[in-house]
């Protein structure tokens, strides 16, 4: 039978299964540790200060973001260690499947599992709250804000996926550093552009607001640029970083 060299869902399933079970123990330990920590905090808050329970959602999502980025950064670890890379790179799977498996695990399955764990923790905390204080309203992690945060995670984790392919060691920290440097450079650049355009106004004691710039310029800054930035973030960031990760996988050598 002719082998499909481009994409096979069966091979994708096998690759995900291999990835999960080969590193199952360390994954479970990490997930269990963080979940346990969050559970203890939540139970304590539910018992001693029930009104503050709603504020814990921010902590849950912070843990999910940081944990997810670290998990994503290490997803291609096998490929970067010379003693393991041969088995990863000679495994009969296509580049599409390698990328899809990594993305599904870190970008889709991870937030789903995290959300379910958060829901379980919140449920438990709510139960304790209901037992101890009679008045507690039921709080859930499934809210529009949560979905928005999940969307932001899915988009931003693609940057760490690229870092996972590109850097051979300390992928998380190096990706973080690269992001800081890039955002610094962008900030300095936009600052300089702003100064070049409007610096003279400032020296004359004038301030820029809707009254002293043209309507077209006002629309550019308040409408076009934010919309464009939203469009780039929502629709272009993820595909761009997935494509660059694909090329990184294709070009990877021992």
């Amino acid at each position: 039978m002719e082998t499909n060299n481009i994409f096979s869902t069966h091979r994708l399933y096998l690759l995900i299964r291999r990835q999960v079970f080969s590193n199952g123990k360390s994954l479970l330990i990490a997930l269990g540790g963080v979940s346990g920590f969050l559970l203890i905090i939540s139970v304590l808050v539910a018992y001693f200060n029930p009104s503050a329970l709603i504020g814990l959602t921010a902590l849950y999502f912070t843990c999910m973001f940081i944990g997810g980025y670290i998990f994503t950064s290490n997803i291609f670890n096998e490929m970067h260690q010379i003693q393991k890379s041969y088995s990863f790179l000679t495994l009969p799977v296509s580049i599409n499947e390698r990328l899809a498996a990594a993305w599904l695990l870190t970008g889709i399955l991870f937030p789903i599992v995290s959300l379910l764990i958060m829901a379980a923790i919140v449920l438990l905390a709510n139960l304790i709250m209901n037992l101890t204080v009679d008045m507690a309203p039921f709080q859930s992690v499934f809210s529009p804000t949560s979905l928005k945060l999940i969307k932001i995670y899915v988009i931003t984790q693609s940057l760490f996926l690229l870092g996972a392919v590109y850097f051979r060691k300390n992928n998380f920290l190096k990706t973080l550093l690269a992001l800081i440097v890039v955002s610094l450079v962008l900030n300095i650049y936009t600052g300089l552009v702003g100064w070049a355009l409007f610096g003279s106004l400032n020296s004359e004691g004038m301030h820029i607001d809707g009254n002293n710039i043209s309507p077209a310029m006002n629309q550019l800054f308040t409408d076009y640029i934010p919309n464009m930035a939203r469009f780039v973030f929502n629709y272009l960031t993820l595909p761009f970083f997935l494509v660059t990760t694909w090329f990184g996988l294709k070009e990877r050598q021992v």
Binding site: N4, L89, T90, P92, S94
Partner: peptide, 12 residues
């Protein structure tokens, strides 16, 4: 090119 069909036939 590391095609799966070829990699099935290589073991190192």
């Amino acid at each position: 090119h590391r095609l799966p069909g070829v990699l099935q036939d290589i073991y190192m």
